[in-house]
C-alpha cells in the first residue's frame, strides 16, 4: 500500500510540467557549480602540491558542492512538500484516501516516501558528476558516501517537517511558507549562536549535516535525524487522523 501511494505521488510529480522545469533549472545550477569548483581546483592545484598534507579533489570539489546542495534543499523541499496533503485537501481528493481501507500512517509514509525518491533522483546527478572525475583522478569514496548518507537523512527530515505543515492546512502556499520559515529559522538559530557550546546548534539539521559533510559519521547526528523525522511523521499522522477538513 505504501508503495502504491509512493508510485502515485511520483507519477503525479512527473506529469506536471513545473516539475520538469524545476528539474532542468536545478541540473543547470548543479552543473555550473560543479564546473566552477573543478576549475578552482585546477587553478589552485599547483599551490596545493606545496602543502604538507594537501586536500584532495574530493575535499575541494565534492564537499562544497554537497554543502551548497544541503542549503538549496532547505529552500526547495518546502516547495514540494506543500502539495503533499494540503493540495489533496484543497482539491478534495483526500476523501479517496480516507475512505480507502488504509491507515493514516500508510497515507503519510507512502506520500513522504514518494517525495523522498523524487528528491533523491533529483540530486542523483551530483554524485554522477563527481564520479566522472574518477576517470582522471583518485576519489575519496568514503567522503562521498558519508555526504550522500547525510544528504539522504537531511532530506528525510526536511520532508517530515514539510509534511507536518502540509497536514495543518488546506492552503499549499501557507504550508510552503511555514515550512520554509521553520527550516530557515532552525538554520539561523545555528548561525547566530556564537558560542560553540550553545544548545541552539543542536536544533539545526544543517549543523548535524556538517559532520557528514566533512566525512565524520557520528551516531548522535544520525540519531538526531531519525528522531526528528520520526517525531514529525508521527505528528503528521495524528493530524491526518483528526481529519479536520
Amino acid at each position: 500500500m505504501i508503495r502504491l501511494l509512493a508510485m502515485r505521488e511520483l507519477r503525479s510529480l512527473f506529469s506536471q510540467p513545473s516539475t520538469w522545469f524545476i528539474l532542468a533549472l536545478l541540473q543547470f545550477v548543479f552543473a555550473w557549480f560543479f564546473l566552477g569548483r573543478t576549475e578552482t581546483f585546477l587553478e589552485i592545484q599547483p599551490q596545493l602540491t606545496q602543502l604538507a598534507n594537501p586536500p584532495g579533489v574530493t575535499a575541494v570539489v565534492a564537499v562544497p558542492l554537497f554543502n551548497t546542495l544541503a542549503l538549496l534543499l532547505m529552500m526547495l523541499t518546502p516547495l514540494f512538500t506543500m502539495r503533499l496533503i494540503a493540495e489533496e485537501r484543497r482539491n478534495q481528493t483526500f476523501a479517496l484516501l480516507l475512505s480507502a481501507p488504509i491507515s493514516s500512517a500508510h497515507i503519510v509514509l507512502g506520500k513522504c516516501l514518494g517525495l523522498l525518491i523524487f528528491l533523491l533522483l533529483m540530486m542523483a546527478t551530483v554524485p554522477l558528476m563527481l564520479w566522472s572525475l574518477a576517470i582522471g583522478t583518485h576519489l575519496d569514496q568514503g567522503l562521498i558516501f558519508s555526504n550522500l548518507l547525510g544528504l539522504a537523512l537531511l532530506t528525510t527530515s526536511y520532508i517530515a517537517i514539510g509534511a507536518y505543515f502540509s497536514a495543518l492546512t488546506a492552503q499549499p502556499i501557507i504550508a510552503a511558507i511555514s515550512a520554509l520559515i521553520t527550516l530557515v529559522g532552525l538554520w539561523l538559530a545555528d548561525m547566530l549562536a556564537t558560542s560553540a557550546t550553545s544548545p541552539w546548534h543542536m536544533l539545526s539539521p544543517l549543523y548535524h549535516f556538517q559532520n557528514f559533510n566533512s566525512g565524520l559519521l557520528d551516531n548522535r547526528d544520525a540519531a538526531f535525524f531519525v528522531l526528528l523525522s520520526a517525531t514529525l511523521l508521527i505528528l503528521t499522522v495524528r493530524k491526518v487522523q483528526q481529519r479536520v477538513d
Binding site: 503525479s12 478534495q92 476523501a95
Partner: peptide, 15 residues
C-alpha cells in the same frame, strides 16, 4: 466494504 463518491469527485486530474 465501502465505496464513496464525495460531493466533489476525488480525481487525480493528471492521471
Amino acid at each position: 466494504h465501502i465505496g464513496y463518491l464525495p460531493e466533489t469527485p476525488p480525481l487525480y486530474r493528471e492521471l
